[in-house]
Every structure is written in structure tokens, then in C-alpha cells.
Design a protein around this nucleic acid. Sequence first.
DNA 1: CATGAATGAGTGTTCATTCAT
DNA 2: AATGAATGAACACTCATTCAT
Lengths: 211, 211, 211, 211
Amino acid sequence: MPENSRRRRPEARPEEILDAALSVFSEQGFAAARVEDIARAAGLSKGAIYLYFPSKEAMLNGLVERSAGHLAKTAEAMVASGAPRDAETGLRNLLRMLFTSMADPAISAAPRLVFAEAGRFPVIADFYRRQVLEIARGAMRALLEAGVGANVFRPVDADAFMRAVAGPAFAHMALTTTFTLPPDTLTDPADMADALADILLHGLKPRAPAS
Amino acid sequence: MPENSRRRRPEARPEEILDAALSVFSEQGFAAARVEDIARAAGLSKGAIYLYFPSKEAMLNGLVERSAGHLAKTAEAMVASGAPRDAETGLRNLLRMLFTSMADPAISAAPRLVFAEAGRFPVIADFYRRQVLEIARGAMRALLEAGVGANVFRPVDADAFMRAVAGPAFAHMALTTTFTLPPDTLTDPADMADALADILLHGLKPRAPAS
Amino acid sequence: MPENSRRRRPEARPEEILDAALSVFSEQGFAAARVEDIARAAGLSKGAIYLYFPSKEAMLNGLVERSAGHLAKTAEAMVASGAPRDAETGLRNLLRMLFTSMADPAISAAPRLVFAEAGRFPVIADFYRRQVLEIARGAMRALLEAGVGANVFRPVDADAFMRAVAGPAFAHMALTTTFTLPPDTLTDPADMADALADILLHGLKPRAPAS
Amino acid sequence: MPENSRRRRPEARPEEILDAALSVFSEQGFAAARVEDIARAAGLSKGAIYLYFPSKEAMLNGLVERSAGHLAKTAEAMVASGAPRDAETGLRNLLRMLFTSMADPAISAAPRLVFAEAGRFPVIADFYRRQVLEIARGAMRALLEAGVGANVFRPVDADAFMRAVAGPAFAHMALTTTFTLPPDTLTDPADMADALADILLHGLKPRAPAS
DNA sequence: CATGAATGAGTGTTCATTCAT
DNA sequence: AATGAATGAACACTCATTCAT
């Protein structure tokens, strides 16, 4: 067991600290989080944290940058992959990915944190807007245009489209992770995503019987 | 402005303090907010706050309860109103109300605060869930059932329906108040609501030409 | 006994705190001094200090400015006093004042503190140089010129004169307050000043027998 | 510069560390000085310092002892050399040595440090008093007695004599190293020493014309 | 009712010192 | 001998809360 204190020297320290910080920030909020708790969660002493990050705020920034990287990459991958071929399947897959991600506390923790703290840290808001929102916006716009071009989607407003697709996943996250809602009939994110896709694709109004 | 003589009606103090607290909590977050700032915003001394609220947390609770009252009343009003008559118009009005409310910082401040702090204050989460979410859920379920009964809506999943309606407004709020997005083409919440209604009602897929 | 805690509200608080700070800084040095010790010495809690001074360094600055004020006044009084009439008596009085002041820990504390910390706080060094040294320099130069004009003093170098007059008092302070020297034969500062005056006025070399 | 290969003669380490410590202590003061800065200045890692000195305070002690050795030797040398022959020249040389030493930051650093920190470290005060002050006192007393015996000096008070000789050099140091005085007419320490010698030897009062 | 001086517990950050390598 | 990661005790400063007036 090389688990003695003062022993290991993995180059992964900063990552471990960010993991711990994300966990503590998510639970307590940035202002209420204590550096000592982060340290304990990372298996370090309080002082050791400052060997890797110059301040508590630096951990928050590091966190956001790391998470933005992940999300941006996933979003771009979604764009490039199947969407152009089959916009309808692309939309279904995107919704599944969104609902699954948002329902997973490990993935949604960073976005929730950003949403909660961006008001106080303009740098974070700007960074996230450029690195995540812009990319997601581009991806969804591309999906919509592909569908419209193939006559699979009607030419709806792009901004409304984005809110119609991402908003429900965001709301799902709020309901499941912030308010611990009693497990609904449809707790499974994939099922919820499919139900959403049905509404978005076919609309609420009954189709005229294909006469 | 009856604001000068007679030292202002003192019986309105708690309301004024809650107004100030909402403002400061929204800007700084609960943990980072200073009671002295709330006092200054309310035109009182720090000590005077404690004549009306026993603690900082009590202000947060008071805030949430007050806002929940407002929201619950609005929600119930919506149910009772035109929905049964004309579900489609009911949906359009609901969306307009949601987008307009969420885009107005004065109205969305409380829900945003709840979303941000509910994780740390289970009492608040529970209270909000019961007093706001349950009522909103009931209202939207009633709207859906009315529409289905009148054969104006397809019988879609109720939980997906809720997320499809409320989620986009929630996302709209996040985009406009947290990240100061550059004003889109559709900054007007009512227009955005109408575009959303179009998508939700008619779906993304083109309708078959009416026979 | 109006000595309960949380009671008195003398406007003299800042002065009391500066007294306490001077005492603690003198004993421990600025860096090693603890704000809590200053607070205790001032009969206050740690937090109360910050109602009057924004930082530990602000207390040091306040201290220096206050002491500089005292010293400047004393120096100017000396200039204006008897010097012009009788330069020799003026010199004797100046030396007595200097030795007496420097030997009194309550008076020499501030200059010693400035000397010890000026290297780290350029603002203090500059301030002291302008507010104390320049004035003292002017006073001593005036004394010398008065004596020379009256043919009571030889026209010696002014800077050497200043060092010859002030230096011994400074050394006396160092010996008595920093190193607790065993009480010499001449512990009395006035006697020491007179012996110094004798040396400075008549020189070390024997005078030629009066013709 | 044999400074590259063979990792430098390791037996000189303690001396190098003391050099670095003197430099850092002088700039920052003992309490504010960081061991890491000393280590960097000595070209070592923080931990290595503790192979040679058990604590930060031990470096201060080592420093003082080393410097006291230097000063004591110089002082004794001055006594033994020319003073007995020609007390007047002896005084002039002593003053030149004192002013030159005190004006040189490299030499005055240790005495200044002792003066600044002696209050907090009685051991240092005692040590310095015995090893430096006593010896200097003896040397100056011997110089005075030699002069008096040869009828070159008047029989003035020995303690006043010491303060009259050493004090001005001490003041000169304070003025030039602590407060960065604008270069006076007499920046050269030797000139300043000569001007001082003139005052001390011949006094401020004009000599009666040798009838 | 209202004030604001005062308290004291709490937290971010620093740094002398240790120790596994 | 040397390193530098790690520790833990401090300490400056903040702020919710109290209380004499």
C-alpha cells in the first residue's frame, strides 16, 4: 500500500484537486466551500493545495476551463458525426446525449456550478459563453440547417430551436439534481429524451389523418 | 413619492428588507452576501435587520416563501383561466407568460436564487418543490389533459410535456440573465414564446400537404 | 467603574490603539507583532481594531505620522526658542533635550521603530525624511549659522555639525534601550549631554594657556 | 570563476548560507525573511538549509557571531596599532574607519541587523554587548587615556568621548543606508570623518588668538 | 425602534520545518 | 548531500450576531 502520507508524487495532483474542488463547490457553493474540505477530499493538507493553485478562485477557474474543454469537444463531435446524413436521428441522439449528461451529477456538476457562480465571476461567464455556448449554438444551428436542407425539418427560428432542444434537458437537470424529485414514471433519461423528440418532431397537434 | 417625512411607514419594513435581501443575494449569492449590504440597501442599520429577522438564513427563507406565494398564485390563475376553453391559446399564453417572466430580472431573481441555493438548504428545496413545482406541474397537467380531451393535443407524456414547455423559458433566462448574451434577433420574449409555440404545436417535421 | 466591555465610546479610540500598536511594534517588531496583541493591549477585541484601521500596516503608518507630528513640533519649537540669542546655550539645551528624549523609551520608541522598519516601507522612510529629518536639519543649520554669525561658533561643516550633535544622542539611545547597558557612572542624560557639550564646544585638544 | 563544475566546494556551504541570510535579513528583517529566499540566494533548496542550520534563528545567531568576530578584530587592531604613539592621528584614523565601514552597506548590514533585532533576541544583545561593545569601549578608552597621558587630549569623560566618536558614524549610517538621503556635499565618508575630527579636536568655539 | 460599536468564531493564505526519496 | 512535496500551526482579516445606549 503506497498510501502513506507524504509519499506519492503523481503528476495528476492538479487533476485530483480539481475533482475534489468540483465536488465541494457543487455541494457548498464557491463562497461557502472551505479550502480545507477540498484538501481533505483530495487527500491532502490545506497547505498542499497552495502548491498547485495560488488561490481558491484559481481552482474555480481551472475547473471551468477543464470542464469547458470536455463539453466543447463532445458538442463538436456530435455536429460532425451523423447529423448531416440523417437530421432526425441526429436530433434524437443529441437529445439523448443531453438528457443523459444532464441527469448524471458527475457531468452536470460543472455546468450547474457555472450557472450558479457566473454572475459573480464575469471572467467565467465570458469564458463559458465563448468556449461552450458558442460552440453548442453552432452545432445546433448546423443540425437545424442540415434538416431544413434535406426537407426533414421545417425552417423554424434557430434561437427558438436551440431553446426547444437544450431547455428541456436543462430543466430535467434542475428537477432531478437540485430538487430531488420523486422518481417519475420516466426517470430514465433516454426515455425522457425520446418522449421529447416525439413532441418536438411531430408537434402537439394531431396530424390530419393521411386522408 | 411619499418617501420623506414621517420616516416611512414602519409596518412595511419586513417587505423592504426582503426586497433588499433579494437584490443582494441575487448579486452576491447567499454565502457571499453581507448583512450590512442588505441593511444599506434597505436604508437601515445592520442591527435593525435583526429586529425583523433572526438571522441571515431567515431572510432567505422569507424570501423564498414570499416568492413562492406569488408564483403559486400566478400558476393557479393560469390553470383556472382560459385553458379549458381553448388549450392552444392557453399554451400560447402560458409560454408568453413564462418567457416574459423569466426574461425580467425582477421576477426571475427568486427562482434563480432558489435554483442556486436549494442544494445547500433542503428546507428551501422541499418548500419550493411543494409550493411551486407541484402546483405548476398540476397546472400544466391540467392544460395537457384539457387539450387532449378536446382533441387539440395529442396524448403525449405529461412529464416530457412539462419539460418541453418550461425548459425553454428556463434556458432563455439562463442565457439572458446569467450570460449576458448579445441581443439576438428575437430579444422580445413574446416573439420568442410565439416561435416556441409554433415548434411545439406543429412539430419540426413538415406536415403532409392536407390531402 | 464604567469599565464594562462593549461600553465606552471615547473618540480617543484611534489614539489608544496607536499607543498599543507602538508598544507592541516596539517590542516585537512590525512583522512579528500580532494584531491580537495590539488589541489586547488596547483593551479591545481583534475585530474592533479593524473598525479604526483598515490593516496592520495602516497602524504603522498612523503611528509614524503621529510621532512625526510631535517631533516636528518639538524641533520647530527649538528653532524658535533661545538659539538666536545665545547659540552656546542653545546648543546645550538642544543636547539635553536630545539625550533626555532618546533615553526615554516612551519617546524614542517611534524613531527606533522607524529606523528599524523604514527599509521595508519606503513610504515611511520618505515621510519621515521630509517631516522630521528635513525639519531637524533646518533647525540645526539655523543654530549653527546663528552661532557663526555671533562669532560664538567656528564656521564648521553643517552636515558634520548635525552628525556631531545628533549622533551621540542616537548612540546613547541604542546603548541604553537596545542593549541594556549596565548603568554607567553617567546614567543621567542631562549630565551626559553636558559632558558632550563640553567636548563639542571646547574640543579635545587642550587650549593654549590664555597668553 | 571556478563556479561551474564539481558543484562548488561544499565545505564553504555554511558561510555561503550566512552570506545569503545576511542579505535577506537585512532587506526583509528577520521575521519577514523567508527561508526559501535565503535558500535561493544561496543556490540551495529550502530543505538543504536545514542540513547546516537547525532553524532560522540559528542562522541569525551564526550571522551575528561571525560578524562580531570581524568587528572585534578590527577594533582591537585599531587599538594596538598607532594610537599610543600619536593619539590625534589615531582618532582621525578611527573616525575614518568608522565612517567608511558604516557607509558601506556590506559592512554595516550586520550591526544594523543587530540593532534592529536585539530587542527580541536577548541572547544576541548580550553576545554583541560582550563581543563588540565591550571591546570597542576598551579600545576607545585606551585611545583617550593615551591622548590624555601625552597631553594631547583634555581629560574628558570617557563615556561621553565614546558617544562623541562613534555616535556620528552611527548617525551617518542611519542617514545614508536607511533613509536614502540625497547625496550631500560631503558624501565621501573620509571627508565626513575629517570634518568630524576637526570639530571634535578643536571644538566649536573659536580659539583665542594666540595672543 | 434604531444605532453602531464591539465581539469572536471562522477562513484564506503563508511559511518554518520535516521527511521520503 | 540534496531535493521538494507535504504538513500544520499561525495569523491577518471578515462578518454574522449581540447589546448598551
